[in-house]
Amino acid sequence: HTVDVQGVTYHFDNPEEARKFAEEMAKRLGLQVHVKDGRYKVE
């Protein structure tokens, strides 16, 4: 499970961890979480 944050890619084994990380980063950076091709993108 992959999370892209402003061009940096993070990998997680656990989909729940990936989702939480994406939401946390989006909140911290004031950005949105998009799901695209099964990847989380924070932009």
Rank of each mutant, 00 (worst) to 15 (best):
K41H: 15
Y10S: 04
E17L: 10
H1N: 12
P15R: 13
M25W: 13
H34M: 09
V5Y: 04
R39C: 15
H34N: 09
H1T: 14
V5T: 04
F21Q: 02
R19F: 09
A22R: 00
E43Y: 11
L31G: 07
Q32L: 08
K20N: 12
V3N: 00
A26P: 00
Y40W: 13
M25C: 15
T2K: 12
A26D: 00
L31W: 09
F12I: 02
M25V: 08
E17F: 08
R39E: 15
R28A: 11
A26M: 02
E43M: 08
E23M: 14
R28I: 11
R39N: 15
E16A: 10
P15N: 15
E16T: 11
R28C: 14
D4H: 06
R28G: 05
F21K: 02
K41T: 15
V5E: 00
D37G: 06
V35A: 05
D37C: 15
Q32G: 06
V35K: 06
P15Q: 14
A26Y: 01
Y40F: 11
Y40G: 03
K20C: 15
Y40N: 03
K41D: 07
Q32K: 14
V33L: 06
G30Q: 05
R19S: 06
F12P: 00
G7M: 05
Q32R: 12
H11D: 08
E17G: 09
R28K: 12
V3A: 04
H11P: 05
Y10D: 00
P15Y: 05
V8W: 10
E24Q: 11
H1P: 10
H11N: 11
D37I: 02
V33E: 01
K36N: 08
T2R: 09
R19V: 06
L31D: 01
A26T: 02
V8Y: 12
F21E: 01
E43A: 08
L31K: 03
H34W: 08
T9I: 14
H34K: 12
E17C: 14
T9V: 14
E17D: 12
L29V: 02
K41S: 15
R28H: 07
A18I: 01
R39G: 15
E16S: 11
D37N: 09
K20W: 10
R39Y: 14
V5P: 00
L29R: 03
Y40H: 04
R28V: 09
K36R: 10
K27C: 14
T2C: 09
Q6M: 14
D37Q: 05
D4Y: 08
H11Y: 13
E16D: 13
F12W: 04
D13F: 10
F12G: 00
G7C: 14
D37F: 04
F21T: 02
F21V: 03
Y40C: 08
K27S: 10
V33P: 02
D37S: 04
A22N: 00
K41L: 15
A22V: 02
A22G: 03
V8L: 11
Y10T: 04
D13C: 14
D13Y: 09
D13N: 12
K27L: 11
M25E: 13
R19C: 10
E24Y: 14
H11V: 13
L29T: 04
V8H: 10
N14C: 14
F12L: 04
V3C: 06
G30H: 06
D4V: 07
V3L: 01
H1A: 13
K27A: 13
V3D: 00
E17I: 09
G38I: 02
T9Q: 09
K41Y: 15
L29H: 05
V42N: 02
F12M: 03
V8D: 07
V42T: 02
T2D: 13
E23L: 13
G38C: 14
A22I: 01
E23I: 14
A18P: 01
R19T: 05
V5C: 13
V8M: 11
G7H: 06
E43G: 14
V8I: 12
D37H: 06
P15G: 14
E43R: 06
K36C: 13
H1R: 10
A22L: 01
A18K: 00
V42K: 01
Q32D: 06
R19D: 03
V8Q: 12
A22Y: 00
V3T: 03
K20E: 12
K41A: 10
V8K: 13
G38Y: 03
V33Q: 01
K36L: 11
E23P: 00
E43H: 07
Y10E: 01
A22E: 00
E16C: 07
H1C: 14
A18F: 01
D37V: 03
H1K: 09
V33K: 01
F12E: 00
V42R: 01
G30I: 03
T2S: 12
L31Y: 07
L31V: 06
H11I: 13
N14V: 09
E24A: 13
V33G: 01
K41I: 15
K36I: 15
H1E: 06
G38V: 02
G7S: 06
G7A: 05
K27Q: 11
G30R: 06
G7F: 05
V42S: 02
F21N: 01
Y40I: 10
Y40E: 03
H11C: 14
D37R: 04
D13S: 12
T2M: 14
R28M: 12
M25Q: 11
K20F: 11
V33F: 06
D4C: 09
L31F: 08
V42D: 03
D13Q: 11
F12Y: 05
V5F: 05
V42W: 02
V33C: 08
G30T: 04
R19N: 04
Y40D: 03
T9S: 11
K20T: 13
V35D: 05
V5K: 01
G7I: 02
D13W: 09
D37M: 04
Y40S: 03
Y10R: 04
V42C: 05
R19I: 06
D13P: 10
Q6D: 07
V3K: 00
E24N: 09
D13G: 10
D13V: 11
H34R: 10
V3F: 01
A18L: 02
P15W: 06
V42I: 06
A18M: 03
V35E: 12
H34P: 01
L29A: 03
V35I: 12
G30M: 05
